[in-house]
């Protein structure tokens, strides 16, 4: 059986984190009868069918790029040659979509991809020198939906890619991202949040590879698990030889809302370069009772206080959604799931 979301450096097999488990099952074909529509496009940006070759060569960390590509009925491809203030907005429902963004030197673009139902996405970004690309994926999958997300990017000198992934539901959620910081002074900024409820199986594999000098990576995830949700998150910062003065920070903050959840985390730092700074931190457990008590002593009802504390953790990702309505919908979804928990 083919393996997906393979950890960059394996460890004890019995922990079950070396790749996605069978319960995360990736089918060869998707039943994606829905649609994907571009609902807003910055003036002057041409979105077409042809994928730039540099993007097609990029690989995510999932191992299922090809499956999504073979199943995708929709695509959005663009060569970005200007700085665009307004985002490209795509709305997808029950569909498989491939997106390829090639940003030329100095270009800037934000993409907001709103996903509903079961959706499969492969997004590839190539950022030339000094380009900035910001990709935000927000999935409102419900408990009967599956969700697969593959993200791959590469940064030339001084380029920056931001990737935000909000997985706010779904029955099976399998996501992976890989960014290659090829050029000197390139940067990757990842913020993720997820909510696993019911019998959800969530599997994440996020990787930042540092090749250039003076590279910077920030990878931060926050999550909440309720019901009997089962989650694995692999987060890896990989300093390759020559990545001098590279800096990478990684964190995960998980709130556990039920005694039946399973929460596995493997935050890796792989280091083949001396002059680097790598850090990771992880925190797993219940909401801090002292903080909860403090909020309640200020007159905030318990349910609202709990919600505030979870929202605060999710804020890093949700605040980056470049649309107020979607942002509010994301917060409402989190609150609703908290109430169910």
């Amino acid at each position: 059986m083919e393996k997906f979301n393979i950890i960059p450096s394996p460890t004890w097999n019995r922990l079950g984190v070396n790749c996605a488990e069978e319960s995360a099952g990736i089918p060869e074909t998707f039943d994606s009868a829905g649609a994907s529509v571009i609902t807003a496009c910055p003036e002057g940006l041409e979105v077409g069918d042809d994928a730039p070759i540099a993007c097609e060569e990029l690989k995510s960390s999932t191992g299922f790029d090809e499956i999504i590509e073979n199943n995708a009925a929709f695509s959005f491809n663009a060569t970005v040659e200007d700085k665009y203030a307004n985002p490209l907005v795509i709305n997808t429902e029950d569909a498989a979509v491939v997106g390829n963004i090639y940003a030329v030197e100095g270009a800037e673009l934000t993409i907001l991809h709103v996903l509903r139902g079961s959706s499969e996405t492969l997004t590839r970004v190539y950022a030339e020198k000094g380009a900035r690309v910001n990709v935000v994926e927000v999935s409102f999958a419900e408990s009967d939906n599956i969700r697969y997300s593959a993200f791959a990017s590469c940064c030339e000198e001084g380029a920056e890619v931001r990737f935000t992934r909000c997985e706010l539901g779904g029955n099976r959620v399998v996501c992976g991202s890989k960014t290659v910081l090829q050029g000197n002074s390139s940067a990757y900024d990842f913020a993720g949040c997820y909510f696993g409820e019911g019998e959800a199986v969530l599997d994440f594999n996020d990787l930042s590879e540092h090749y250039g000098r003076d590279t910077l990576c920030e990878m931060h995830s926050a999550g909440a698990l309720s019901g009997s949700a089962d989650k694995i998150l692999r987060g890896t910062i990989d300093f390759k030889e020559g990545a001098k003065r590279g800096v990478g920070h990684e964190s995960e903050d998980v709130i556990l809302l039920s005694p039946d959840v399973r929460d596995r985390t493997a935050p890796l730092i792989l280091c083949h370069e001396e002059e680097v700074e790598g850090q990771h931190a992880a925190s797993h457990g219940r909401l801090d009772e002292t903080a909860l008590y403090y909020l309640m002593s200020r007159g905030i009802p318990e349910a609202q206080a709990r919600s505030l504390m979870v929202e605060a953790r999710f804020a890093r990702a949700i605040d980056r959604i470049p649309d107020e309505t979607i942002r509010e919908e994301a917060l409402t979804t989190v609150r609703r799931r908290l109430q169910n928990a």
């Binding site: 450096s9 460890t11 004890w12 922990l15 984190v17 556990l256 809302l257 039920s258 005694p259 959840v261 399973r262 929460d263 596995r264 985390t265 493997a266 935050p267 890796l268 730092i269 792989l270 280091c271 790598g278 990771h280 931190a281 992880a282 925190s283 797993h284 457990g285 219940r286």
Partner: peptide, 16 residues
């Protein structure tokens, strides 16, 4: 650095 945490109860505090 290859750490793994596997947590199966909510009533705990695990930090790394």
């Amino acid at each position: 650095t290859i750490p793994v945490m596997d947590i199966r109860t909510d009533k705990c505090d695990v930090g790394h």
